[in-house]
């Protein structure tokens, strides 16, 4: 299976601190991938590089079948190319309704004049409704997003990601602050999404990662320490050392 995202030899330095050090990761077209690692391992910086928020000093980031370099593209261009990102802290537009949040994320032309000319369509309404159903917010469509609970906001954000219909989903700690029931729901959502696209999950919580049941990449000091199944990497002596601080 060919890779949809190929990160090779990427390094980035903040004021002398090497956040990412010659990192290479390849993400296949479909399926889940979990990235774990201790604090400061460079997990979030990795996402920043892929989504265009941070420019690396070195290395290449190649995307899709046409092998486009993502370096030098703006955040919005990368998003339009098909990479969706969910932040650690749920960021939905609290002043607007759940429906509006989803409508904005919906795959459609993004230019200001196209948006001005856009008309509300039956198909879009149906799609919003389906998505709301999927994330369990069908009843909450007209409510302001600010009124939702923490878990519901996380789902809304995942729903917005799905609405974008990206080829690669980057999810940063989706289960943080969720009840066990909510976690189960989130796992289902991600697994279902991973059937048709690539999903990369950054997570601290080993239990959650175990439930995802997927290939795991361990990052440490900005480089890949180990890769394989969760059982495989947790048996790796170096991983144990790093996690136990030895």
């Amino acid at each position: 299976m060919s890779a949809i995202l190929e990160v090779s030899g990427v390094s980035v330095t903040f004021d002398g601190f090497r956040a990412i050090n010659n990192l290479s990761i390849s993400i296949p077209k479909t399926g889940l991938r979990a990235i774990i690692g201790p604090n400061g391992a460079g997990k979030t910086t990795f996402m920043d590089i892929v989504t265009g928020k941070t420019r690396p000093d070195d290395g290449r980031v190649i995307w899709g079948e046409k092998s486009v370099s993502l370096l030098g593209l703006s955040e919005s261009a990368i998003a339009q190319a098909g990479i969706g990102r969910k932040f650690q802290k749920p960021t939905v537009f609290e002043a607007q309704s759940v429906g509006d949040n989803l409508a904005m994320a919906l795959r459609a032309p993004r230019g200001p004049f196209e948006v001005l000319r856009a008309r509300r369509s039956r198909a879009a309404d149906d799609r919003i409704h389906d998505l709301a159903e999927e994330i369990g917010l069908a009843d909450a469509l007209p409510r302001p997003a600010g009124e939702l609970s923490h878990g519901q906001k996380q789902w809304l954000e995942i729903g917005m990601l799905l609405a974008q219909d990206p080829a690669l989903l980057l999810v940063d700690e989706p289960a943080a602050g969720m009840t066990p029931a909510e976690r189960a729901h989130t796992t289902d959502l991600l697994k279902r999404a991973a059937k048709t696209r690539a999903v990369v999950v950054i997570e601290h919580d080993m239990e959650f990662v175990r439930r995802l049941d997927c290939r795991v990449t361990v990052l440490h000091e900005g480089a890949v320490l180990a890769e394989g199944s969760l059982d495989h990497v947790t048996r790796n002596q170096r991983v144990i050392d790093v996690y136990l601080g030895r």
């Binding site: 703006s74 955040e75 919005s76 261009a77 998003a79 339009q80 990102r85 904005m104 974008q164």
Partner: peptide, 8 residues
């Protein structure tokens, strides 16, 4: 956040 939704 709007940028990451793909809007310029």
């Amino acid at each position: 956040r709007v940028r990451f939704l793909g809007y310029e």
